[in-house]
Design a binder for these strands. Structure first.
Lengths: 345, 345
DNA sequence: CCGTAAGCTGTGAACGATAAAAAGTGCCTA
DNA sequence: TAGGCACTTTTTATCGTTCACAGCTTACGG
């Protein structure tokens, strides 16, 4: 079939109805799988539809059905490998359950408020925010419309949003154990963005466990960075230039850990892990590259996405007062960037 | 204001109209910036709207205005750093010009047909596909609805889709010149996915220039891989295990080049670039990490995105027969992974 | 031969907005 | 005092669907 006649307007169900010699709602029925319609009629309608290149208008359908199947996703940072992977898994899973994704990307550090408002206007049926948060005002707007809003890898207590996160505190404790078991004495933590809960929880778990096991405060340095390769590199330079450089560094994420390894090796000629052990968090693809072989705490992204989707589908309870945080356990992946306990013996 | 009364249905313009004591279209006017409405009335309406938590329904608006401001984006691979960056830049730019992004992610190697159909149902006003293509049938469906469809970094001649790409052939030639100028004799090319035009154009430009400058065919090896770190690593192992291993490798993208460097260094104890030069394509963030310092052909993503958006906005000409490919020039970024001409002297 | 229950299909009213046309205001001029 | 104009608002129609309901066939039992 050729497109000989130029169609200025796209075909609607009326056009199809006329061509098939039926009423317009019958066209609608032909496209709904379990509608009361004779197979012969349906076939005739579908043929007519094909001839005209007709496709039901999902917007109009959403309007009458009062359901859009749209999910809004707002990403703060999306070039970080970890979040890239999250976006991919999340998008795929949502597609599998018949949802469409509307994506927003906002500048680093910004609140998602404006993006969320725009998405609400499109009648999204749920929101997932990664590496960003919203103000209580916008969270309340979502609540009023009964639109669930889920913070992925974040959590803000007292606001009407649910959170999904890895058990960051436990992750920090695992790392502390690993480093102490390997006999490290002078430790450092490179923190991610200052205000993020994930970073401070990792730090807290790490430090708490160190203290529990008798490490003195002066044996531990903490330095602020911002989750990027460059900031990890810089922070490590600063640590190594300090009067008492550490022999083990725990970084709040893998990208910083990789920056740290490069700084140690290429900036100071150090060997990893012989001279300094480095541990990250996330387990991004580059962590397993031979150049790095990074020991890290793996975040179970698939499980976290599953949990997020479950919360989306669960909807918002009518008496939703303040959100809850669901934790998923991480796992310490031992590669070559940190000394193992037996190597110290 | 507290949410004392539980509202089962979200407020519509009727509710706001009633509360403000005006007619329903007046509410609509209050929300359109340049409508004929008394400032006092607008204020009253906006107050009422705020009280009810009213937001105009973008779906209903799209229906009457016959314009949705939606752009569909379909990504084949989105974990590759290059495409991640493309997605980020594209998303941001579209937001800046008031468009919304509907995102689809499809399994590697699949055609985007089904995704495009679903997006068309949502009345998207344009489509951008990266690392995937569509069949001619679906391209024609888009054409019939006058929906522009743009292949980013791909091109299929004879199908009604426009393409945007880096001048891959020229990129290949730049690399050939660089390697020959540095005195390399035994060359290799690690190809990306077999059927992709980008990879074969890079290969063609590379090989053509080598021949032009008198390199014999037996001096050049070509090996197939699939754009991933692992495949680049494997391909390099194969090359180095061959009877006549190359002293310079050009990889169809950066991730493979990084895999190649790791293979050369950690698999064979070779020094880069003293023992082997390695050049990539894309210029992803990791290319500039100290561990790699990869010489590569930078794809000008910002320009490419700009070109894609220009094509989206230009719309589809009524007599669109077969698409055109717009080329953007890449740039050779010289870092440390390939010998420089003067080093050979 | 008619009532009745299936089995389909058509009619009219939503859905929530915008666009165009019609209708009030108030004020000024002839 | 009527007519006209500038503003502003209401009325009516429309976008492309789906839903509830009414209505038309046909087949079958009584």
């Amino acid at each position: 079939m050729t497109l000989d006649t130029f169609t200025p307007k796209r075909a609607t169900s009326f056009d199809v109805a006329k061509l098939a010699g039926v009423s317009q709602p019958t066209v609608s029925r032909a496209f709904s799988p379990d509608a009361y319609i004779a197979t012969e009629t349906r076939q005739r309608v579908l043929n007519a539809a094909k001839e005209l290149g007709y496709k039901p208008n999902a917007l109009a359908r959403s309007l009458t059905q009062q359901s859009t199947q749209l999910i809004g996703v707002v990403m703060g940072d999306m070039t970080t490998p970890f979040y890239t992977y999250v976006l991919q898994v999340l998008t795929r899973r949502l597609q599998e359950i018949g949802r469409q994704v509307m994506l927003f990307n906002i500048p680093k550090g910004d609140k998602a408020d404006e993006a969320v408002r725009q998405l609400l206007a499109f009648q999204v049926e749920g929101l997932v925010l990664t590496s960003t948060t919203v103000t209580a005002v916008v969270a309340d707007e979502c609540y009023q419309r009964q639109t669930p809003i889920i913070l992925f890898n974040r959590f803000v207590p007292g606001v009407r949003t649910n959170g999904i996160a890895c058990d960051n505190g436990e992750g920090g404790r695992l790392v502390a154990n690993q480093l102490l078991d390997a006999g490290h004495q002078r430790l450092a933590f490179i923190a991610g963005l200052a205000h993020t809960r994930a970073s401070s929880q990792r730090e807290k778990g790490f430090i708490d466990r160190l203290r529990e096991r008798g490490v003195e405060d002066e044996q531990v340095q903490v330095i602020q960075a911002e989750y990027t390769y460059e900031s990890g590199y810089q922070a490590t330079v600063a640590l190594m230039d300090s009067p008492d450089p550490p022999d083990a560094i725990f970084c709040a994420n893998d990208i910083m850990a990789i920056g740290a390894m490069d700084a140690a090796r290429y900036g100071f000629g150090l060997r990893v892990p012989q001279d300094v052990s480095i541990i990250g968090f996330d387990d991004i693809p580059a962590a397993s590259w031979p150049a790095y072989q990074l020991t890290t705490v793996r975040q179970p992204v698939d499980q976290m996405v599953e949990a997020a989707i479950a919360q989306l589908l669960a909807g918002v309870p009518a008496d939703f007062a303040s959100g809850t945080l669901s934790l998923v356990e991480g796992e310490l992946v031992r590669r070559q960037s940190a000394r193992l306990p037996d190597e110290v013996e």
